[in-house]
Design a protein around this nucleic acid. Structure first.
Length: 380
DNA sequence: TCTGGGGTCCTAGGACCC
DNA sequence: TCTGGGGTCCTAGGACCC
């Protein structure tokens, strides 16, 4: 989806169309849900980025804002210097999730073999869709774009290719509202000139290491000896880098999967000290455990591995986890295990973030009997 | 001007078992 | 006297993605 969060916001605030708008920072509270009247709010009613104080990053920026050099993951204070007049909107995940479901429903109505890749992205297997091969897939891609636009008012960009790796790259060739089709024979002309960082799976760390080796483009990566890549990056990742540079990817489109973990974390408005701010930290900690427990209950899962995450003021992170005998979705049980984890870390430095995670998940239907047998149905 | 929140997967060492 | 070869599970950290 094109600038997904920002595009959803523009649907309810059409008066912001064409203006620099960034989404980020504070979460929208339920009382702040936009009403029909908001569509007519005067521009002066919107908060400007220059007035923002505090922590937080941009999750999405409109294309008008991107022209100022602001973009995803950038700190809001930095963005405020680049574009002080930009309008700042708090995130509203409930709204984005509704639109996410809506566009995925449209996709599935055309092509049922769809893999969910988060809130604004999917992979689709066209192979067996009637008419999917017309004009190399362009006809079906156009129909999907039109269907999504009609159902949601949102635009998207589609890449069509022989595999997921290339399709993902192709989807970024012509944003917004583009369709790009890549054939195997296009590798040298359309993929190899791109920077290595464009490969989904090469992040900032690997990119820096590649650059240090004098490898900047995918074509340069492709020319490397596999053995040399394996020496530098390990057996599995080195071989994968070479395959990726040659456009090789055999992964299937996976239509269903079970969650592995659920977590909640929060960055404090100011750094907190374990002793000095003990009461406040304790309240936040318990609330995080309750939120994870509520998530598990709502989605029908229990987990055996309870963990915490801390981020110190200097941004170092540590994690601790503990695996308990029986999977749980009970807030007090999670709180107890997480509390034991917390006792195993040094708390002399100020903290900026605290998180609670439950892993090793199993569907709750598989757990009830275990707790009955153990005589602990209340901890289930 | 410090840098969100929710995830997945991988690695590597140690415990423990057969 | 020093020393097998699997295998699984647990833990901590890190890279990466949306």
């Amino acid at each position: 989806m094109d600038a997904f969060f920002a595009s959803v916001e523009l649907l309810r605030y059409p008066q912001l169309r064409g203006l620099p708008v960034v989404i980020g920072g504070r979460r929208r509270t339920p009382q702040e849900g936009a009403s029909a009247a908001d569509a007519a709010l005067p521009l002066s009613a919107f908060e400007r980025l220059r007035n923002y104080q505090g922590r937080g990053v941009i999750t999405t920026a409109t294309y008008a804002a991107r022209a100022f050099g602001v973009g995803s993951a950038m700190g809001l204070m930095k963005a405020a210097r680049l574009c002080p007049d930009a309008i700042l909107l708090p995130v509203d995940f409930d709204a984005y999730r509704r639109y996410s479901r809506a566009f995925k429903d449209v996709v599935r109505s055309f092509a049922p073999v769809m893999e969910d890749r988060g809130i604004d992205e999917v992979y689709i297997d066209f192979t067996h869709v009637p008419g999917g091969q017309e004009q190399g897939g362009r006809v079906l891609a156009q129909r999907i774009q039109q269907g999504i636009l009609a159902a949601t008012g949102l635009t998207c960009s589609i890449g069509v290719a022989p595999n997921k790796l290339l399709a993902k790259m192709a989807s970024e060739f012509d944003k917004p509202q583009g369709i790009s089709i890549i054939f195997e024979g296009d590798l040298a002309t359309r993929i190899w000139p791109l920077p290595c960082r464009k490969i989904n799976g090469i992040g900032p760390k690997t990119d820096a290491r590649l650059q240090a080796l004098g490898i900047h483009t995918i074509g340069e990566l492709a020319q490397q000896d596999v053995a040399a890549l394996v020496r530098h990056f390990g057996k599995a990742y080195g071989a994968w880098l070479h395959d990726a540079a040659w456009g090789r990817d055999e992964r299937a489109v996976v239509t269903a999967s079970e969650p592995v973990s659920m977590s909640r974390e929060t960055t404090f408005e100011r750094d907190l000290h374990a002793v000095h701010d003990r009461a406040e930290l304790g309240r936040i900690f318990t609330a995080l455990c309750e939120r994870v427990a509520a998530d598990l209950q709502r989605k029908g899962y229990c987990g055996r591995t309870i963990g915490i995450k801390l981020r110190y003021a200097d941004f170092r992170s540590v994690t601790r986890e503990q695996t308990i005998a029986l999977p749980t979705q009970d807030a007090a049980t999670i709180r107890r295990a997480a509390g034991q984890c917390l006792r195993r870390v040094a708390l002399t430095q100020r903290l900026r973030l605290l998180g609670v995670r439950v892993g090793n998940l199993v569907p709750q239907s598989e757990v009830a009997l275990q707790h009955m047998a153990a005589g602990t149905p209340e901890l289930f």
